[in-house]
């Protein structure tokens, strides 16, 4: 991270519905659309899990996979 980036505005972050990490949508490595909403993921693994049962994961309050 360069010093300049500290002065930049914080990007709007999206929550990864699987692991609940906060993800910068512009840099997300994976995304998926479900019922008209785009979800962003920290990594392809989360996308994979999400797409298996999107409805359940959106509803879930807890991360699908605990560390």
């Amino acid at each position: 991270m360069s010093i300049l980036s500290l002065f930049k505005k914080k990007p709007e972050l999206a929550r990864d519905p699987i692991c609940h990490m906060m993800v910068d949508p512009s840099k997300a490595r994976a995304s998926s659309e479900f019922e008209g909403v785009t979800y962003y993921f920290c990594a392809p693994g989360c996308k994979m899990l999400f797409e298996e049962d999107p409805a359940r994961h959106i509803a879930s309050e807890k991360p699908a996979v605990e560390m």
């Binding site: 990864d16 699987i18 692991c19 920290c42 990594a43 693994g45 989360c46 996979v65």
Partner: peptide
């Protein structure tokens, strides 16, 4: 490389185990 969270571990673990001939897989983030 490229693993960021536990679900990555889970995904890779499952992928590896699904490969015929693999009997066990252990992924460390």
């Amino acid at each position: 490389s490229g693993m960021t969270c536990a679900s990555c571990v889970f995904a890779i673990d499952r992928t590896l185990r699904a490969v015929p001939g693999v009997s066990d897989a252990n992924v460390n983030l």
